[in-house]
Amino acid sequence: MSLIKARNLIYEYIRRDEEGNVEGITRAVDDVSLDVSPGQFIAILGHNGSGKSTLAKHFNALINPEEGTLLVDGLDAREEDNVFDVRQSVGMVFQNPDNQIIGQVVEEDVGFGPENLGIEHDEIWERVISSLKAVNMYDFKDFSPNKLSGGQKQRVSIAGIMAMRPKCIVLDEPTAMLDPIGRKDVLDAISELNKKNNISIILITHNMEEAVLADKIFVMNKGKIEMSGSPREIFSQVDKLRKLRLDVPPATIIAHMLREKGVNIPEDILTREELVEALTKLNNR
């Protein structure tokens, strides 16, 4: 059974002028269907304004689709009564690390979700401690969030979601504002949660190096899903990705450029190791 089942979702933003008349309608999500199975790591790629953030908010019942059906863990996300259950099973991490931490001390922030769920006092602490350990932030439990780096704050946010014991975490460009070290730490934490705790991940990003980690990639453009498939299938289509204003991993680009020059090298190269290996094979022939 799939954890998230979306069928023909449509969401429109209506722009109004100062008098409230409709100026124009933007279809942010246009006829999107997708499935996420338990434990799956999904990346949604797309340039800014491609509708990927709007789509993500659906999975957490922060917005409701205008048309189409969305089942989260078997529950209809459009039903008012299901909202809190949906939010508990699908957690969400946002882009700006500063604007999503509510607590004034790290451990209190992580406890915020469980407090809202009405969990017993002792269990809250158990969850807080295990979640902080899971993202490697336990040593900072009594720090003020203001003293942390961006990457650390983002990991605290992830722990805050973990403490609600979700089945899936949606991360909306969680590394866009981080430096390379913070980026790596956050990604490591995400992949570990995915592998160890079998939590489904939906990673929204425009960074191809992050998307490579996923089991499956969806590429969005103008609210529609343009491409879907494994990283290898997606990144072998260099020209198409470039048309969609996206980047391709450097190893894939170099392989692509070599192919254009007539070198017989496979198209689906993703990493440096693969590139070196393919070239060595050619050289030895």
Partner: peptide
Amino acid sequence: FRRANELTLAMESRCYRGGENRTRMKP
């Protein structure tokens, strides 16, 4: 305003619904 907006979303997505039925981590 931008921060307030984003914070509201973050709080909502973590099931915040006012003081009702809320437990305390540090009574």
